[in-house]
Design a protein around this nucleic acid. Structure first.
Lengths: 344, 344
DNA sequence: ATGAAAGCGCTAACAT
DNA sequence: ATGTTAGCGCTTTCAT
């Protein structure tokens, strides 16, 4: 650095160099440390000194550098990572909203990475977050091997799995009562008189779906009803596929009188397929959604934002006591029955 | 630091100190710089040296510290901030998803802050982001005075407003063709034969709403129809309020034959109010939504993710040429007419 | 191909 | 109440 005010400009024409603590100190004619003190709460500073520093800071448009601060104070930022599949899915968005809210209360910021349900992107996102020294890592897992996270716990980063557990790795966990929730819905349908109830969901590879399917079967068996594979579609990972699958179910020689959809995507697809269908078929979905009430669709409901809040809370607790045993929180579900769900 | 391996543990029982470049260098018996070279691409390193370094890094579970790297390389992180109102609104969620996608392509991470539409939280979030030295700042503004952002542009941080402009400050901007979109819908309704078309939306304080309202009036006037204040409700900022407002419109002595809702919240509320309503009232909304098709609601549609992508792109362009004049992108809308929209 | 020294912007520790 | 020194973990000169 040659002359005082010639700090290298970041490549652009009229862009001005960003002032640092030093610049403020120089202008206020105090030491760096004094400025630092003023900037962070400012104990033990004479009122007029503080005044002078603040004026200088304002004049220079000084903005403290949190990156430098974090580095100095411990190497971890006031930031928590949340790695999810797809923000476009209202379920994930609501969970993220809960995470954000819980963190904001502690003056923490959520860093969000979407993986579009691709394993490589999960690894990549998680790595980037950990390198950024996030305070904690929340994730909705997709990879089927999270052993790459093994070391991280010992290094003190709380890791919380959301919606489903990690594979080959232990962590705190927040899940729904999937099996119980599905069973509630099925019992309601069976009690209403349905005997042929279809199941539409995505791959049984995913734990929540396997559990919802189990809850579906639990009730059928308990009621002495057959579990008819022809009525079970697990090949509907998105709305379009669910629409198609439901359409095919309706076209069956002996069609179902009710359709249980295992998640919001499936419900949306089924609702589309059911629109304009001549005979009455009752739709019951897992996951509430905004227009469920307006469309008279009954659902298994719960509070997704609460999931996010619980996950954030778990992470913060572990930050306090890293060595305690891992914890699992299972969130309850409840039924929202809208209108008449009896068979035709 | 007294003895070699006694770096202070971060306060916890069995938590292990996080290894640094130095630790790796020591184990691999090379210099810090050599490890650094290997970690970042690694030109000019002998194959066996590199091998040794990588082994050491793996053994120690070394993870580079991006915070330190960023500090050294220029004080700005590979991070872009997006400050929005509410992630729970599918519109914002979809925009965020677009932002995330566009950034991920450039290996950048989105940092998200939700303000719950509170001015103080906006200022607070923006400040936190800037202190974190984000590469760029995208925001859906709520404050009515953004002059506090004035200095930031000169300091080289690209700022992009999304959905509506900043107040008292200039910036790049991505908006929708709100007026045109609303006019499209109204023309469709008028052409279909409607004469009494209600308007349900939130506060006209917000630019997009004022524009949509203007589009609504444009068409009525052009068609020689009266603009009846009794049919215009601008007091419906959320779903419940929209439901109530719509209910009251329907109870009018001379009720509307169609309702134009100015955003997805209003549409959801109106749909609820319309459910089970005896006489036929056509619903036309601004913003598409998942179940619009299944429920036969016509909408003014556009691609919210594209908004996010455009905003991110604008920010990155400005990063390259900070001094060019600000730019505004107006995204087109189109109609999705579903079913018969003619009056009863 | 490798290393030594310096420093990014800040704060902790220890003066004074 | 204020200043000095050192150093967070990394990369950037510039040597060798």
């Amino acid at each position: 650095m040659t002359s005082m005010d010639s700090r290298p400009a970041p490549g652009a024409v009229d862009v001005v160099a960003r002032p640092t603590l030093d610049d403020v100190a120089r202008l206020a004619e105090v030491s760096r440390k004094t400025v630092s003190r003023v900037m962070s709460g400012g104990q033990n500073v004479a009122p007029d000194t503080r005044e002078r520093v603040l004026r200088a800071a304002k004049a220079l448009r000084f903005r403290p550098n949190a990156v430098a601060r974090d580095l100095r104070t411990g190497g971890t930022s006031r930031t928590v990572a949340f790695v999810i599949g797809d923000l476009t899915n209202p379920f994930y968005a609501a969970v993220a909203s809960g995470v954000e809210r819980a963190l904001a209360r502690q003056d923490l910021t959520m860093v969000l990475a979407a993986t579009e349900d691709q394993v490589e992107r999960e690894v990549q996102a998680v790595t980037a977050m950990l390198e950024r020294r996030v305070r904690a890592l929340l994730l909705v897992p997709i990879s089927d091997d999270h052993s790459y996270l093994d070391g991280e716990r010992e290094l003190g980063t709380p890791i919380v799995a959301v919606d489903r557990p990690l594979s080959h790795a232990v962590s705190d966990l927040v899940v729904l009562d999937n099996r119980g929730g599905a069973a509630l819905a099925l019992r309601a349908l069976v009690d209403a008189g349905h005997r042929r109830i279809a199941f539409v969901g995505s791959s049984s590879r995913l734990r929540p779906h396997a559990e919802r399917r189990a809850g579906y079967e639990d009730v059928l068996r308990a009621a002495g009803l057959p579990v008819d594979e022809a009525l079970i579609r697990q090949d509907a990972p998105d709305v379009d596929a669910a629409e198609a699958a439901t359409g095919q179910l309706l076209a069956l020689p002996d069609p179902p009188t009710a359709v249980f959809t295992a998640n919001n995507r499936a419900t949306a697809g089924a609702a589309r397929a059911l629109r304009g269908h001549p005979s009455r078929v009752v739709l019951f979905g897992f996951d509430d959604f905004e227009l469920a009430q307006a469309t008279g669709v009954s659902v298994v409901a719960y509070d997704p934002a609460q999931m996010g809040e619980a996950a954030a809370a778990l992470a913060l607790e572990r930050l306090g006591r890293p060595s305690r045993t891992t914890e699992q929180i299972t969130l309850p579900t409840h039924l929202l029955v809208r209108g008449d769900i009896s068979p035709a």
